[in-house]
Simulated assay, not measured.
Amino acid sequence: MVTERASKVVSLLYDTAYRLGISPWDLGKPMDELVDLIEGPSALPPGRAADLGCGAGTKSIYLARQGWDVTGVDISAQALKHARDRTAEAGVDVRYVEADILDMPSDLAGRRFEFLLDFGCAHNLRNSAKSAYAKAVAGIAAPQATLYLYGFTKGPQSITREQIDNDFGPYWELVSAEPGSIRRWPDAGPVWYRMVVRDR
Rank of each mutant, 00 (worst) to 15 (best):
T3A: 11
V9P: 02
V9R: 14
V10D: 12
S11C: 08
L12K: 11
L13Y: 04
Y14P: 02
R19T: 09
R19G: 09
L20N: 15
P24C: 13
D26P: 05
G28A: 09
D32I: 09
E33A: 09
L34P: 02
L34Y: 06
L34S: 06
V35R: 05
I38D: 00
S42W: 08
L44H: 15
P46T: 15
A49P: 06
A50H: 02
L52I: 15
L52N: 05
A56F: 00
G57V: 06
T58H: 01
L63G: 09
A64W: 09
R65T: 13
Q66V: 11
W68V: 13
G72T: 14
S76W: 05
S76R: 06
Q78H: 12
A83P: 14
A83H: 11
R84H: 11
R84L: 15
D85Y: 09
R86D: 02
E89C: 06
A90N: 10
G91I: 01
V92F: 06
D93V: 13
Y96M: 11
D100E: 12
I101S: 10
D103W: 10
M104A: 11
M104Y: 03
P105S: 12
D107R: 15
L108P: 08
A109E: 15
A109T: 15
F113E: 00
E114L: 04
F115L: 15
D118L: 04
A122P: 00
N124P: 01
N127F: 02
S128D: 13
A129I: 02
S131P: 06
Y133R: 03
K135P: 02
V137M: 03
I140S: 01
A142H: 00
T146S: 12
G151K: 00
T153D: 03
T153K: 00
K154H: 08
K154L: 01
I159K: 00
I159Q: 03
T160V: 09
R161Y: 08
I164D: 05
N166W: 00
D167M: 09
Y171E: 14
E173R: 14
E173C: 03
E173W: 05
L174N: 05
V175T: 12
E178T: 13
E178P: 01
S181M: 02
S181E: 14
I182L: 09
R183I: 15
P190W: 10
P190Y: 01
P190N: 06
V191W: 01
V191L: 08
V191M: 15
M195V: 00
V197K: 06
R198Q: 12
D199P: 07
